[in-house]
């Protein structure tokens, strides 16, 4: 389970989970789960397009995720959910078309959608670390404005925060992060880590910093347990990531409700 080819999976997986936990804290705070679900699908289309044209997948991942993020961010003002939905299906459809034109093998499709953590090459660790650092720095810089804007949009605007700028900054970070998570846990599942653990973490604490750290910790734990279970059972990692995230949230919610009722 800790043999050399698994080492990369553990390292990259941990980094990805840390990032997903951190991004997810803000996603849940801002109520932008739908966007967080749509952007990775942009990355999926990009990866599929890159396969078709024959360039390095990273370029496709980043560029398409960024386009999707900017499209959603720009139209966030009115009926944002419709814009998000349309961006999402357009990206998925593009991905499907690219894949069928390039006649990709079924496992390739599944890997892009559901991830292939065991196939992470050692060369990608540097890239993962670099992108991860950029995202972490961006989130750190936006930390207080993001919280302020999410908690009380009117007040933050009155204090001179530009909501569009902030939204764009956040969506771009989300896009960059997705480009990193998609190859590891897949387009559909990078989302699970972004919502389940952070939503659970914020029920456990009142402090924003503790909620952020807790979200990252729960996310890493979810991924570690998933990799271990996947190794032991030979079933896909994505299955465990998706279901464990949901179980985690539901369990924490039930527990906090119970203790609140008793108190």
């Amino acid at each position: 389970m800790f043999s050399s080819f698994m080492t990369n999976a553990w390292i990259v997986g941990t980094l990805v989970a840390l990032l997903a936990g951190a991004t997810g804290f803000f996603v849940v705070l801002r109520g932008s789960s739908f966007a967080a679900h749509a952007v990775p699908n942009g990355a999926f289309a990009g990866a599929a397009g890159a396969t078709l044209v024959g360039v390095a997948p990273l370029w496709g991942l980043v560029s398409f995720a960024v386009v999707a993020a900017l499209g959603i961010g720009a139209s966030r003002r009115h009926r944002s959910d419709v814009a998000t939905a349309m961006a999402l299906v357009l990206m998925l459809a593009l991905g499907a078309a690219f894949l069928s034109l390039s006649a990709a093998y079924e496992p390739q499709v599944q890997a892009l959608l559901f991830g292939e953590i065991l196939g992470v090459a050692s060369s990608s660790i540097t890239t993962v670390v670099l992108i991860g650092l950029v995202c972490a720095a961006a989130l750190a810089v936006m930390f207080r404005p993001l919280i302020f804007n999410a908690a009380a949009p009117d007040l933050s605007a009155a204090r001179g925060l530009n909501p569009t700028l902030l939204e764009m900054g956040f969506m771009l970070t989300l896009a960059l992060g997705s480009a990193l998570t998609v190859p590891v846990v897949g387009a559909l599942l990078s989302f699970s880590l972004t919502v389940g653990p952070p939503a659970a973490a914020r029920l456990l604490t009142r402090r924003p910093s503790t909620a952020l750290v807790g979200s990252m910790a729960l996310s890493v734990m979810t991924l570690w347990v998933s990799i271990a279970l996947s190794y032991a059972t030979n079933l896909p990692v994505g299955f465990f990531v998706g279901t464990l995230s949901a179980i985690l949230y539901i369990a924490v919610r039930a527990a906090t409700q119970l203790s609140a009722r008793r108190a």
């Binding site: 705070l29 810089v141 936006m142 207080r144 404005p145 919280i147 302020f148 999410a150 908690a151 009380a152 007040l155 933050s156 204090r159 001179g160 925060l161 973490a201 914020r202 029920l203 604490t205 009142r206 402090r207 924003p208 503790t210 909620a211």
Partner: peptide
């Protein structure tokens, strides 16, 4: 459910708009 204590929220009045 926003994870903010009252004092965190008040502090945002001072620096919430600063990147």
């Amino acid at each position: 459910d926003v994870p903010l204590r009252v004092r965190d929220f008040v502090a945002l009045g001072d620096d919430g708009h600063r990147y």
